[in-house]
Every structure is written in C-alpha cells, then in structure tokens.
C-alpha cells in the first residue's frame, strides 16, 4: 500500500459573506480531485464545530466580534499553515466600511430607526458575541502564512493556490489571478 495520509484542511467564515466558500465550491468537478488528496476538519461543509489538528486552515472574513477571535485563535493553534482568503480577511473588506461609524450609532440605525421592525430593540442576549468597535483583518490578530486576495478569488485562482500549496510549491498567482475586487 502506498496510500498517503490525506492533507487535513479546516475552513471558516468570520465577518465574511461566505462568498469565498462559494468560490471554493465553484471549482466544480475538480472538488473530486481535491477530495482525493485532502479531507475536511472543521468547515461549514462538515458542520464539525471545533478545529482539530490540521495541515491547512483557510479563514474567510475579518474579525468583528469576540467569537471571531476565539475561532481565529483556535485555527491558528491547530493549523500548521494559516491562509487568509478574500478581501475581508486581508483588509477588513466591506464590513470595515463601518469602522468610522460609531458602534452605538450603527446599532441604533439598524435596530431602532430602520423601518419595518417590530418592537424595536437592540439585541442583548448573553449568547450573542460582543461586537468590536472596528473590523480588523485577521493578520492584525494572529500570524498569517499566506494571503489569497480577491472578492472573492475566482475558482481558478483558488484551485491554482491550493494545488501549489498541497503539492509543496510556493503558491504563485499570475497577473490576472491577483485581484482585490
């Protein structure tokens, strides 16, 4: 038997829109090739709740609340290689548009003043994670090994990046694969 151990991969979306995950799924039939060499740990695809020891962790989205930090630290502690995927993980992205708006003003605008809401109140359940004053890129919270920009990076870009990484090459993107939008 020459069966190689499969590369264990975890993914998550913090303050993101799951667009990067959708783009990963967009590699379509190549998913079968991918699943020949990797297996998933914690990810929205498996619904595993906590990240165990992994080779690669892929994080979408920025850090906008306390839960994001817990998840991100769990990923950093368990993943040998941590990848920031997409504009939000790398710069804060669209959620960071709120960074210059006072958090209280944001809450009032969304939950008190916005029309169409019944019994207007600001959610305050202890289950809800504490929101931060700003949205931060993940590299400002933990060390990040690789960055894969794009909003989202295209399926081809993700495929190129992952195959490079899995096959032990330094990931390299051609000019047209490097995008911030």
């Amino acid at each position: 038997m020459n069966e190689k151990r499969k590369i264990r991969v975890a993914t998550c979306s913090l303050a993101g829109c799951f667009g990067c995950h959708m783009s990963l799924l967009d590699i379509d039939e190549k998913l079968f090739d991918l699943l020949g060499v990797i297996e998933f740990d914690r990810t929205p695809f498996t619904d595993i709740k906590h990240c165990g020891p992994c080779d690669i962790g892929i994080v979408e989205g920025g850090v906008s609340n306390a839960e994001n930090v817990h998840v991100l630290k769990e990923f950093r502690e368990n993943c040998k290689v941590l990848v920031a995927i997409g504009a939000c993980a790398i710069t804060g992205g669209v959620p960071a548009l709120r960074n210059n708006i006072d958090l209280w003003d944001c809450f009032q605008e969304v939950y008190l003043y916005e029309g169409g809401l019944e019994g207007n109140q600001i959610p305050n359940d202890p289950e809800l994670p504490l929101p931060f004053d700003k949205v931060y890129p993940i590299y400002e919270v933990v060390k990040v090994d690789y960055f894969l920009p794009g909003c989202p990076p295209s399926a081809d870009t993700i495929w190129k990046f992952l195959t490079d990484l899995i096959e032990g090459r330094e990931p390299k993107l051609d000019y047209e694969m490097l995008h911030y939008d």
Binding site: A84, T91, N100
Partner: peptide, 22 residues
C-alpha cells in the same frame, strides 16, 4: 494605486490599518 500593487505583487497591506476618519 491598485494597479501598482498588482504590479508589485502585493498580497496584503502588511501594516496595521489606520482606518482614519475621512
């Protein structure tokens, strides 16, 4: 600015963001 960053193969802004109020 973006194009210069593409040309220079910038993968992340690397430094801490200021997020200045403008």
């Amino acid at each position: 600015l973006q194009a210069a960053a593409y040309y220079l193969k910038m993968l992340s802004p690397h430094f801490m963001h200021f997020y200045p109020p403008r």
